[in-house]
């Protein structure tokens, strides 16, 4: 591919729409609203709910005897499920409103370190996704439900989670993305 044909947004990390303090304040206010209305933010449980619904159709007896997915929590579409549905809609609308909705299959950091090989990016995306959700369930929550909501509520579980999440996250990022691209300031 001719480099000139590549959009500049694919070569330089685009500047954030909001300064860090305003961005963090916005997210913090959403967390406060969530805790005031129904319950803290969380995302990953619903992946198990979706799978559990399918497994129940395919293997009802296995589901009924399973110590996890026989639990009513994993068999209903409640607040958490609709939170994830809302998340997808809200993110799509915000990306459109910001003029940042764009079909693409790789990232600036990936391009800088692994050229423009989209196929390898997609393989890494799948394997990464597998580890993300497997890990989130062992931890009883992800970066939303365990990390952000855990610190907000000062749970004991957030302390060990924070150590391994960022320790392994930083180590893996260092191995996968050794070279830094240009970052718009």
């Amino acid at each position: 591919m001719n480099l000139r044909e590549v959009n500049m947004t694919e070569l330089i990390v685009q500047k954030e729409p909001l300064p860090w303090w305003a961005a963090g304040l916005l997210l913090g206010l959403v967390q406060i609203l969530a805790v005031a209305l129904e319950g803290p933010l969380g995302v990953s449980t619903q992946f198990v709910v979706a799978d559990a619904k399918v497994i129940k159709e395919v293997a009802p007896e296995y589901t009924a005897e399973h110590p996890l997915i026989s639990n009513e929590k994993y068999q209903k579409f409640g607040y958490g499920w609709w939170l994830d549905v809302g998340l997808v809609a809200g993110a799509a609308l915000a990306a459109l409103a910001l003029g940042r909705w764009k079909l693409r299959a790789t990232t600036v950091w990936w391009r800088r370190n692994h050229n423009s090989k989209v196929f390898t990016r997609l393989i890494a995306a799948f394997v990464g996704g597998f580890f993300i959700l497997l890990g989130a369930r062992f931890a009883h929550g992800c970066t939303s439900g365990q990390f952000a909501s855990g610190w907000s509520q000062l749970s004991l579980s957030v302390v060990p989670f924070t150590i391994t999440l960022f320790g392994f996250g930083m180590l893996t990022a260092r191995l996968v993305y050794p070279k830094s691209p240009e970052i718009e300031k």
Partner: peptide
């Protein structure tokens, strides 16, 4: 769990 999630997070730049 934090370690596995961290590996996926560092590979992709995504979380759930």
């Amino acid at each position: 769990g934090g370690a596995l999630l961290g590996i996926g997070f560092g590979m992709t730049g995504y979380c759930p």
